[in-house]
Amino acid sequence: MPIIALAFLILLLAVPAAEAGPLDHPGYAKAFSCSACHGFAGNSKSNAMPVLAGMNAAYLKKALQDYASGKRPSPEMEPYSKMAVQLGVDDIASYFASQTKQPTPVAADPAAVARGRTASQSCVICHGPAGKGDPAKGIPDLSGQPAGYLAVQIMLFKADRRSPGDEQLKAVKALMRSVPDDQVADLAAYYSSLR
């Protein structure tokens, strides 16, 4: 016992001071509220809330601006996004972009994943074979996002309730309308399973 205690003590004295963690980032004081829903450092563990950790900063900034203006309607996100815009949306987007993403821990049904892979042919054109998207074109990374969140977003796109009337999203919404409702959960499961 004393030897183990001594070893602990030596190890404790030998290691350097704590390395910088998520709380040490300059954006933390502006982004800390988000963890109530989106998880510590933006790593959501729930099926309904997207993972923000590692998200492309420009994409997240646009999302927050669209929520704040009401262009992307959400009673929950609108007040928080107005807060983000007033406090400094760039700081908040850079805070989450600099965090290490942990893919959703919500396991997807393997059969749904397999069906979703087959159904994903038309999505690959923009989101890529690994679902990583193309940050330069504002196309988001879908991999490892919770299936519940992805499915809700597809349904919102289909019903033109996400950024309604947005010309740039016209084509992608037309494409999504061709996806039958009973395929939505499969596609969501597939992209959720990608790493």
Partner: peptide
């Protein structure tokens, strides 16, 4: 439900 799960963990 997502809020509850996340904030309880927080």
């Amino acid at each position: 439900l997502g809020w509850a799960q996340s904030i309880w963990a927080d």
